[in-house]
Each structure stands twice: as structure tokens, then as C-alpha cells.
């Protein structure tokens, strides 16, 4: 089964994302900040990482940078959950190695459609 790591410090967003992904048949592991996500990523393998940008301890951009340092995540699709106004941050995420982004606010359908783009 396709395994996804969902990272967001907001519990409601995380719940929504996790619920949506699980309903669509994905296996999901959640993390509430970048550091915890990095630990989770190291202890298992994921086919996709979905991360918020603004988070305490380690933000999404730093997380992407760290993940790309790892051999196992060199080519793994990483999507950032970001707000539309944060154009500069999209770019920062890209240069850190993110594959793309899902623009907030999004609904479950849009999230799933975007995910299908990268993991087929």
C-alpha cells in the first residue's frame, strides 16, 4: 500500500489530511513538526511526504532540505501545504527540493487529485 507521511503542526489540518488520505486507501503516518517527521522518515519508508511550511522546531522547508540529504528520499515526491500568498516561500520550498505544493485552503478532493499527480 502506498505510504504517506503527513506533517502539520495544526491538529485539525492533520486530522483532515489523515482522514482524507486514509479514506482514499493510503497508509498514513502523521507528525506534528519537522523534527518528528524526520525521525519518522528515517525509521520507515514513505512513497510521499506531505508537509506544512510553518511549524515549530523544524519548519517544512528545513525538513525538505534534510530529507533530500537522505539517500532514501532523494527522489521521493515531497509536496508542501502552503498558502497562496506565500509565493516566495513556494520558491524557497522548491529550491530546498520540494516536488510541488498544494495550495491552502484546499478541500479533500483537491488534495487527492494533487497527490494522484505525483504518485499515479
Amino acid at each position: 500500500m502506498t505510504k504517506i507521511l503527513a506533517v502539520d503542526d495544526s491538529a485539525s489540518m492533520r486530522q483532515m489530511v489523515v482522514f482524507t488520505l486514509q479514506s482514499a486507501g493510503y497508509e498514513v503516518v502523521e507528525a506534528s513538526d519537522g523534527l518528528l517527521a524526520l525521525d519518522a522518515a528515517k525509521s520507515g519508508h514513505f512513497d510521499l511526504v506531505l508537509t506544512d511550511v510553518n511549524m515549530p522546531n523544524m519548519d517544512g522547508i528545513a525538513l525538505v532540505r534534510e530529507l533530500r540529504q537522505l539517500e532514501a528520499y532523494k527522489y521521493t515526491p515531497i509536496l508542501m501545504l502552503t498558502t497562496e500568498t506565500a509565493g516566495d516561500r513556494k520558491m524557497a520550498g522548491r529550491s530546498a527540493g520540494a516536488t510541488g505544493w498544494v495550495v491552502k485552503p484546499f478541500n479533500p478532493d483537491k488534495l487527492l487529485a494533487t497527490i494522484k499527480k505525483v504518485i499515479g
Binding site: 489540518m13 483532515m16 501545504l81 498558502t83 491552502k104 485552503p105 484546499f106
Partner: peptide, 13 residues
Amino acid sequence: RSAHSIKGGSGTF
């Protein structure tokens, strides 16, 4: 961060 989270969540919901 707090403002941002509230914004993101309120937009989504």
C-alpha cells in the same frame, strides 16, 4: 505561526 495556522484552518474549514 499561530496566526498562520488559524488562517489556514479557517480557510480550509
